[in-house]
């Protein structure tokens, strides 16, 4: 299986042990309020550094902006 993951539709290389925080850094997503889903499952902010991403995963990073 090819070592890659999809982040907001962009294909990026996947490495063993890659965490959510690594993926956010890779994409330069520095926005404070994000919601991250791996294959449809929400990852809590507190777990970004400890949650590893499986090979082939699909990450959706949603930017939450004030206003309502």
């Amino acid at each position: 299986m090819e070592k890659q993951l999809t982040i907001n539709g962009h294909i990026r290389p996947w490495t063993e042990g890659m965490t959510v925080q690594d993926a956010l850094d890779l994409m330069n997503y520095t926005f404070i309020m994000l919601v991250v889903k791996i294959n449809g499952e929400v990852v809590l902010r507190a777990d970004y550094g400890s949650t590893t991403i499986p090979n082939g995963a699909e990450l959706l990073v949603i930017h939450l902006i004030s206003g309502g």
Binding site: M33, R45, I65, S66
Partner: peptide, 18 residues
């Protein structure tokens, strides 16, 4: 979700999804 602040939106999404 019909909050105004981004922090409240994030809190609701994390909490409700769990």
């Amino acid at each position: 979700e019909a909050f105004d602040t981004a922090s409240a939106k994030t809190m609701l999404i994390e909490c409700f999804s769990q």
